[in-house]
Nucleic acid binder design. Structure first.
Lengths: 105, 105
DNA sequence: TTCTAACGTAAGAGTGTGCTAACATAGAGA
DNA sequence: TCTCTATGTTAGCACACTCTTACGTTAGAA
């Protein structure tokens, strides 16, 4: 999960994720969306996204077509949700501990 | 938003956030939860969390009490949600463009 | 088979990040 | 006032990260 978050900390990678979210795109076309950096840089970003499973790769001849892996981003979403639910658990635990201490007094 | 994600990319900071999620804690007590690193390291992490608004600080004498800022994490959650909604928009746009091209043929 | 397009990969430079050690500050008591 | 506790800050080291340049690979076209 930590590597997943770190991967999204890079703005170009989240932008790539947006590009391939609803549309399958070849690497070159993705790189064309970033005129400021080299194709190599984008290729390396794609490698990172692939390594953490945020995108899927499909080969077609010499081309490599990428799509976003929605499920993996969904995992991050529910991870954030766990912050809230675990806080409810924690509040419950605190309340119970407080009640026990009052019972003792 | 980028800095917000980068802040959570560090596991000790998310752990700190969990600690102060439902309970106000002084800096020393937070640092005590991390025997492997110096108090100074935790102090620096707290400074980062404070700078992006993920925690609130309250001073009481020489102590500084920290609580999580739930609203800021909620912002990140809805940012992730925007990935899905924007994809719906994008799918709609693609569908409409496709329909127009079919109408032309 | 020889070219070329579409990729990935390796090496190195420059920059950022987390940590420790040492120092600074500010209240609370004695 | 002197001291102790709680805490932040700074300098510097080690490591990780992003980018460019240069090179390697593979599949189709000529």
């Amino acid at each position: 999960m930590e590597t997943l978050i770190k991967t999204l900390g890079e703005p170009k990678r989240t932008e790539i994720l947006r590009l391939v979210w609803a549309e399958e795109l070849p690497a070159t076309e993705i790189a064309d969306h970033f005129p400021s950096v080299t194709r190599s840089a984008i290729s390396q970003h794609l490698a990172v996204l692939r390594s953490v499973g945020l995108v899927n790769e499909r080969r077609e001849g010499t081309r490599r077509l990428y799509t976003a892996n929605h499920a993996e981003l969904a995992r991050l979403r529910s991870y954030l949700d766990s912050f809230w639910t675990s806080s409810l658990d924690r509040l419950r635990d605190l309340a119970e501990a407080d009640q026990r201490s009052q019972e003792r007094s």
